[in-house]
Design a protein around this nucleic acid. Structure first.
Lengths: 347, 347
DNA sequence: CTGAAAGCGCTTACAG
DNA sequence: CTGAAAGCGCTTACAG
């Protein structure tokens, strides 16, 4: 590895001059001629700055700790990491990943390990939208939560706008002419359920469709989803069905097929997730909303680096992904899900 | 941050004594009493060694560069990263991840970035089993390929034993009494297709079942899979079907349902992938083999660190994941897929 | 405009 | 058994 010292002696200047030039801080301190010469020599010798030495000296590592419960194993949320990584790359940062496996002992071990490497900040990424307690050891570090919300409401948190997703999905059905719209939701009381349901109700209201409690069916994938799909077709006979997620939509598809009901012709279906493999398998193809995983990772890093380096530092990202923000306050950023049009809605 | 110097002055010894003690190199060099005292002081002051300083001094960072084409976005292969990470954690390493997005310019940019951080070695992880050309800039670094094979055959490569998977799957059907076994394969000529097919033939041979070319149906998911499933039931009437992957199995399920053929009763089906979401949806539940993603990541790190630090250093991992190795030579390590028994095979 | 020097926190010969 | 000192590659006041 060629060092600043090698260049200095080769170029016949001091190491400090080289350092100044390489960091573009030579303005009015090193003459242009010398600067150019130093750059040429560095180029010729294939100089690559040593981040480790710089980190030791400056205390800044340009390194981000990406902590996650198990996001990496999730079939779809790995995109959070990808978005984070892309933003980090563009900003001259690099991500150190740590998986906690929902184990708080492992978590603190990993946080300690990351600290030894002098990470400048942390990303705390979750598997799905929920509130979390940020470990107290992280309380004083720059940190941004991705796909979740700080329970204490203090740390910036980026998450999907599930209310809007529910609204957009329901509204899409209304625009297609549906009037009897079932919400095929989740019995588990997670944020996504609460908010998507709220969005469903708001869309009905805006559309002038009276809310009918009997059209709300909350099921569990593993137990009563199939039975309730059956009951729904028997008793409710909806013209539109908004499913909490793609997996639930498969039960609707299954039951419709059994009865010879054509989705996309006799009844409209929309859901949320745009799950690979499921969407490949369903016929007709499923219109669904995609969670903004990539955008959340990207935006989380944008905000994190802006905390670390200031707002100016992230201007190179322009406003990428920013247009996906649907609501924002001091600490919370909600991001819009995008609709993927396919063929499960009557035209 | 408390440093070695703080401890030294607090404990009334020199920094070198502290260093020796903290690194457990004090045997016959520092008295036990002093050593214990130093440890106590360090403990009390909450000392955490600074990896960055150590790296600068020793040239060793205990950091691994995890380079991947897009593994992180894959619905299932993120487990490679998880396995790698767990092994790294246990060995005192940490992973820096870089996504190349199949872009060789971005790849070399990322490799350079990782080098500046002094990574001790690289993991080159792929999305699926194939051969790759290792970038020449990596030729002289410790590197291990995960879920792929170095085209040049020089660098250690860990990949699934697809031949054995084909053998095990087919054999499972034979053991269930099947004699007319269709291979419902892939038209794409990837390694997995070549090897699983070879395993299918070997199992037939071992089972004393004559090979019949008309039982081999290679399809594309996106185009002719459904038609060929139809033709298969019409013309071939198999008693067992070995599917290249779970997605292909869904076409078999679909066609069987249409005809009132009961999978698991009238015909046996087995496949490969154990894909979440697909397996949740299919009824009866699908017996399938799981690719050793986690084990490949784990084993890749084990081999990489043994290159960097020597065989002894990885003994703390004992033989975890090693029992999954099915074949091995100088540079290649094939790992066994494990069968997940469910209800799609006639008992 | 340029250089000599200190120092980030550690490790490791070397001397005693 | 213990310490003083050099040095890893960089940055940054300070002096000129």
């Amino acid at each position: 590895m060629v060092s600043i010292k090698d260049i200095a002696s080769e170029a016949g200047v001091s190491v400090c001059t080289v350092s100044l030039v390489m960091n573009n801080k030579y303005h009015h301190r090193v003459s242009n001629g010398v600067a150019q010469h130093v750059r040429d020599v560095a180029q010729a010798m294939g100089y690559k700055p040593n981040s480790v030495a710089r980190t030791l000296r400056t205390g800044r590592s340009h390194t981000l700790g990406f902590i996650t419960d198990e996001i990496v194993t999730s079939p779809y949320a790995g995109r959070v990491l990808q978005g984070a990584q892309e933003a980090a790359r563009r900003l001259g940062y690099v991500c150190l990943v740590a998986n906690t496996n929902y184990d708080s002992q492992m978590e603190s071990q990993e946080i300690n390990a990351l600290r030894r490497y002098n990470v400048d900040g942390f990303l705390y990424a979750l598997m799905y939208h929920r509130t979390v307690d940020i470990p107290s050891s992280l309380a004083n570090s720059p940190i941004v939560v991705a796909d979740g919300e700080d329970a204490a409401g203090r740390k910036p948190s980026i998450f999907p706008d599930d209310e809007l997703a529910g609204y957009d999905a329901t509204n899409r059905l209304i625009k297609a002419g549906c009037r009897r719209i079932v919400y095929f939701g989740s019995e588990t009381m997670i944020i996504a359920q609460r908010d998507r349901y709220a969005g469903y109700r708001r869309a009905l209201k805006d559309g002038g469709i009276p809310f009918d409690e009997s059209l709300v069916i909350n099921v569990l994938e593993s137990t009563n989803a199939a039975d309730e799909a059956k009951r729904m077709f028997d008793e409710i006979r909806p013209d539109g069905i908004f499913c909490f997620n793609d997996v639930r939509a498969t039960f609707i598809y299954e039951e419709a097929r059994r009865r010879g009901i054509q989705i996309g012709t006799d009844v409209s279906v929309i859901s949320i997730d745009n799950q690979p493999f499921i969407i490949e398998v369903l016929k007709p193809s499923l219109t669904t909303l995609e969670l903004p995983h990539y955008a959340m990772g990207f935006e989380a890093v944008r905000q994190l680096v802006s905390i670390i380096d200031g707002e100016d530092a992230v201007s190179v990202l322009h406003d990428e992904c920013v247009e996906q923000i649907s609501a924002q306050d001091d600490t919370k950023t909600a991001m819009r899900c995008s609709i993927i049009e396919r063929n499960s809605i009557v035209t």
